[in-house]
Nucleic acid binder design. Structure first.
Length: 277
DNA sequence: CGCTCGGCCTGTGCGC
DNA sequence: TGCGCACAGGCCGAGC
């Protein structure tokens, strides 16, 4: 479900609500979501811990605890984290319920149940390969035009597939890749190594622009996404191509096309994003 | 080694 | 109305 801007929005929302809270009880209703350690140990180890700090890396959310262990949550497609005030009961959609000593709670919901939860000592975070191998994120000093250029150099894969690789760029997902390529005027099926310098410059600008604008808009609610308090995002109102098959391109008016690239639904403007390979 | 594809899950919305 | 199918924001591992 969520990509970098959505996870960032959840982080900002939850920070003020759960940092400093003591976990009194963990109610596990779908144990298979807990990948490490075994659910019983997960439950025991978390009970009594204080959440000292929240952090986001790519699409991962990290809950640092007062004993230097870390709860790592990945929401995958439909995971949600909801803060629940003390007077409300836990709902039927909750898969894992974190109850605080103060009476309030954090609930993990997940329709498709593809999400993952790990509890690890800080020093063992490197064993989570997806997390440890994350590439630089958009809007960081490491994500330069030169880095993008170097990563596309010799890349025979389609540019869209390359941009979705979290080890190359951390945090981009299907929506923002489609939107970035649209803004840069690059067809998603172009070979990575076919992009000219000026196109790479445009793509670099586009990725940063799209991600920063979406963070400002609190992410994209295409369907399921909500932040930690249940609020929708706003970026869906300014999407140029994603989910807009058959609708006019806001730039040129041509009708948006949908195709499949690397098994992912892909949207582009046939006029602004010409195939030139 | 680089890359593509299928599998993991459940729910929703569409066309017939 | 009911049914079946296509599709869904991500990631990993098998296999080419």
């Amino acid at each position: 479900m969520p990509e970098l801007p959505e996870v960032e929005t959840i982080l900002r929302c939850l920070r003020e609500r759960v940092e400093g809270k003591t976990i009194r009880q963990v109610d596990i209703r779908l144990p298979r979501l807990i990948k490490w350690p075994a659910p019983e140990q997960f439950q025991t180890a978390l009970t009594g811990r204080v959440i000292s700090r929240l952090e986001r890396r790519g699409k991962y959310l990290l809950f640092h605890l007062d004993d230097t262990t870390v709860l790592v949550i990945h929401l995958r497609m439909t995971g949600r984290l909801y803060y629940r005030a003390a007077q409300f009961p836990s709902g039927s959609l909750t898969r894992i319920d974190f109850l605080f000593a103060e009476g309030d709670a954090l609930e993990y919901q997940d329709t498709r149940t593809l999400g993952t939860l790990h509890l690890l000592p800080l020093a063992d975070l490197k064993t989570l390969r997806g997390l440890a191998g994350l590439g630089p994120e958009p809007l960081t000093p490491e994500f330069t035009q030169a880095y993008l250029s170097q990563g596309l150099n010799g890349c025979k894969a389609k540019v869209k597939s390359r941009l979705l690789d979290q080890a190359f760029i951390g945090g981009l997902g299907n929506i923002y890749v489609d939107e970035s390529l649209a803004r840069a005027g690059i067809h998603p099926e172009r070979r990575g190594d076919s992009l000219r310098d000026e196109e790479i410059a445009k793509l670099h600008e586009a990725v940063n622009h799209v991600i920063s604008q979406s963070i400002r808009e609190n992410g994209t609610t295409f369907r399921d996404y909500r932040d930690g308090a249940g609020n929708k995002g706003g970026f869906q109102n300014v999407l140029c191509v994603y989910g807009r098959k058959g609708q006019p391109c806001p730039v040129c008016g041509a009708l948006i096309c949908r195709t499949e690239v690397g098994g992912r639904g892909t949207h582009y403007c046939p006029q602004c994003q010409k195939e030139v390979d």
